[in-house]
Computed example of a mutant assay.
Amino acid sequence: MTVTASSTPGGAPGSASAPAASKNGSGAGPLAGKTVVIDPGHNPNNFRHTQEINEPVDIGTNKKECDTTGTDTNDGYTEAEFTLDVSHRIRAILEKQGAKVVFTHDGDRTFGPCVDERARIGNQAKADAVVSVHADGADEGQRGFHVILPAKVKGGAADTAPIVGPSRELGVRIAGKFVQDTGMNASNYVGDGTALDTRSDLGGLNLSKVPKVFIECGNMRDSRDSALLKSAEWHQKAAQGIADGIMAFLGG
């Protein structure tokens, strides 16, 4: 999720196309009647619109930039490409279980959406769960995944008190299933080994009225993590882990 100076998207060696999504909201399966919003972090086109994404938006407690470009691997595979591919795979899994899956965007916008709109999409969908998919951009040797939970904040349009508890439950479920399905260890640099980090500075969490978490699936700037993050096979494992955590939270 960290911003980098890179501006040229690269391709992931050996990446396969994301599987086609099944019929949205099929009405059959253990998640029938449930709505899940998947928020693919950043946008592949953001780097072309730095002025627009740097415009501040109100996140309740203060103002923050609309969005960021995201990070990338040392050979140019971008976080935005990664998050879209994994999000497509999550959608296919959840729709097979009967869930209605809504995306905040599908790479079809010139930039964004801004963080306040991303929260608003989940709120308007009356989502049972929202997951924002990311990858981190930390130093070499800093490895593993972590799930970001909303802190209790109140100010302006932000009031997370009603969602702090269920969001934590969602995050715990996802963290447990992600370890199980991917074999990825909890972050060795965030969360003190718990794979959980609570933050009050993210507009997408501050403005949410429904249970929501972010997941940083690994560190794109660590050579060992990045090898996984560029692997289509590992993308599927990551998607399964996230989807399994959502299903566990929703009782599916």
Rank of each mutant, 00 (worst) to 15 (best):
A5V: 01
A5W: 07
S6E: 15
S7I: 13
G10M: 08
G10I: 11
G11A: 14
A12H: 06
S15F: 09
S17Y: 01
K23T: 12
A28P: 03
L31Y: 11
L31R: 06
L31N: 11
V36G: 07
I38R: 01
P40H: 04
P44F: 03
P44Q: 03
N46I: 03
N46D: 15
R48Q: 12
T50N: 02
T50H: 02
Q51I: 02
E55G: 04
I59P: 00
E65P: 15
T69S: 14
G70N: 06
G76A: 01
F82S: 11
D85F: 09
V86F: 14
R89C: 12
I90V: 15
I93S: 06
Q97P: 00
K100Q: 10
V101E: 02
T104V: 06
D106P: 00
T110P: 15
T110L: 05
F111P: 08
P113R: 02
C114R: 01
D116G: 00
R120N: 15
I121D: 13
G122T: 08
A125L: 11
A125K: 11
A127H: 09
A129M: 13
A129L: 14
V130W: 13
V130P: 10
S132R: 08
A135E: 05
A135P: 12
A138N: 01
E140N: 04
G141P: 14
R143Y: 10
R143I: 10
V147N: 09
I148A: 12
L149A: 06
L149C: 11
L149N: 10
V153W: 14
V153R: 05
G156M: 09
A157W: 04
T160K: 01
P166L: 03
L170M: 03
I174A: 07
A175F: 09
G176K: 09
Q180D: 15
Q180A: 15
M184Y: 02
M184R: 05
N185H: 12
S187C: 12
N188C: 11
V190L: 11
D192E: 12
G193S: 09
G193L: 04
G193E: 07
T194M: 06
A195N: 03
L196P: 13
D201S: 12
G203R: 02
G203M: 12
G204M: 09
G204D: 02
L205V: 09
N206P: 00
S208E: 07
V210D: 13
V210W: 07
P211T: 05
E216W: 04
E216H: 02
C217V: 04
L228Y: 13
L229H: 08
K230V: 14
E233H: 04
A238P: 09
A239K: 01
Q240C: 01
G241C: 10
I242D: 06
A248W: 03
